[in-house]
Design a protein around this nucleic acid. Structure first.
Lengths: 205, 205
DNA sequence: CGACTATGTAGACACTGTCTACATATCTAT
DNA sequence: ATAGATATGTAGACAGTGTCTACATAGTCG
C-alpha cells in the first residue's frame, strides 16, 4: 500500500514535495494574495486538480508550509543556543536575535504561521512542530533558572515573557509598524538586542 | 444635504458607512475567509458593484476596518491611562491589560491590523491612526521617565519593549499558540499582569 | 427646466476552490 | 506475466469571486 519512497516514480515522481516547493516559491515571490492552488499546480507543471491527490484542500497545503516554518524556527533557536552552551543570558539574547531574524526574513510564511488562519487543533504534526518551538525556548529558560541566572519563577511564566517580547518585536517589524527598515540588518540587530536586554534587566531602574 | 431617511430605493443615502458596518458584521460573524465584497454588498442590500462607488477595491475597505481597529485600540489605551494619572507603572500595566483585552476580543480585526496585508504607506489617515496608537503608549513611557520611575533611556527604546511585549502576548493568544482559553478572562488577566510586571521588573533576579 | 455629477445596477470576464467522472501508471497476488 | 486493485493525474463543470464597462437613476445647481 505505502509506496517505497526511495524509488517511488509515479506519474510525476514526487509531486507532493514538488507542490510544497512550488507553493513556497509562489508565496515568497508573489505574496500570499497570488498563492492559488491552480497557480501552484501550474508552476509544478500538473493539472489544476492534481494537488487534491496530496492535500485535502488549500488549507492543508498552507498548514504544511506553516509547519515547515515552525521547524525552521525551532532549528534556528537550537542553533543559537548552542553558541553559548553555558551562558543562559547570552543564549536568550542569541535566541531572540535568531527569532526575529528568521521571522523577518520570511514574512509571508510568518503570516501563515501566526495569522491564526490555520487551526492547530486538527493536525497533530502541526501541533508537535509548534510545541517543539516552544520547548526550544523553554530549555533555555529552564537552564537559566537552574543556574540561578534567572529569577526563581515558574519557567512557563518566564518563557511567556521572553517569547511574547521576541514575537511582538518580530511581528511589529513584519507589519512594518516600526519606523525601521527591516532590511537594515545593523539597526535591526541593535533593536533586537535592546529588547532582549530590556526583557532581561527590566524597564524600571 | 444628506437625507434623514434612506428610503429611496435607488440611492442608499449613507452606503459607505453601511458597507463598513456590513463588512464588520460579516468579518466578526463569519470570519475573514467569508468576507467578500459581494457578500458585503448583499448584506447591505445593494448590487455587487455598488461598493466600487465608495472604495477603490476590496483592500481599501479592509484598510478602513483596520484603521477603525487602531482608533479603538488607541482610545482604550488612553482610557486605561486615565485610571491612574500619577502612577506610570500602574498606567503601563493597565494599558497592557487593555491592549491584550481589546486585541483578543476582536481577533479578526486584529489580524487585519497586523497581518501586514495592508500597506500603510499609501493611506495618510491609516498611518495617522497607527501613529496615534504608538503615541498613546509613548506618553506613558515619557511620563515614567520624567518622574524617574522608569530607566533613563531613550523613550523610543522603552516603548518598543513595552509595545513588543504586549503585542506579542496578544498575538500569541489570538493565534491560539498559548495553552490558554482566550475566553477565560481571569486566567488571561493573570497572564497579562505577569508579562507586564516582568517587563517592568525584568527576568534576571 | 436642463445639464452635470454622484450614485446604483446589470452583465461580462478571467480567475478561484472544489467536485465528479474518467484515464493511466504502479503495486500485489496469483 | 498477467490481471485486478490501487495510487495518481486529467478534463470538465459548478458556484463563487474581484473588477471592469456600459447603462440607469437620483440629487444638485445653473
Amino acid at each position: 500500500m505505502v509506496p517505497n519512497q526511495a524509488h517511488s516514480r509515479y506519474h510525476h515522481g514526487d509531486l507532493r514535495n514538488a507542490l510544497i516547493q512550488a507553493a513556497t516559491t509562489v508565496l515568497v515571490e508573489k505574496g500570499a494574495a497570488a498563492l492559488s492552488l491552480r497557480e501552484v499546480a501550474r508552476v509544478a507543471g500538473v493539472s489544476h486538480a492534481a494537488p487534491y491527490r496530496h492535500f485535502r484542500d488549500k488549507a492543508a497545503l498552507l498548514r504544511v508550509l506553516a509547519q515547515g516554518g515552525f521547524e525552521r524556527l525551532t532549528a534556528a533557536l537550537n542553533r543559537a543556543a548552542e553558541n553559548s552552551p553555558h551562558n543562559p543570558e547570552q543564549k536568550l539574547i542569541e535566541a531572540g536575535v535568531a527569532y526575529v531574524r528568521i521571522v523577518v526574513q520570511h514574512p509571508e510564511i510568518t503570516r501563515l504561521m501566526f495569522a491564526g488562519t490555520v487551526e492547530p487543533q486538527q493536525d497533530p504534526a502541526y501541533l508537535a512542530a509548534t510545541a517543539a518551538c516552544y520547548e526550544a525556548l523553554l530549555d533555555i529558560i529552564r537552564q537559566g533558572i537552574a543556574q540561578g541566572t534567572f529569577r526563581q519563577r515558574p519557567p512557563q511564566q518566564l518563557v511567556l515573557v521572553a517569547w511574547a517580547s521576541m514575537h511582538g518585536l518580530a511581528m511589529l517589524a513584519v507589519a512594518r509598524l516600526l519606523e525601521v527598515d527591516v532590511d537594515d540588518e545593523l539597526t535591526l540587530d541593535v533593536l533586537i538586542r535592546s529588547v532582549a536586554a530590556n526583557v532581561i534587566y527590566g524597564i524600571v531602574k
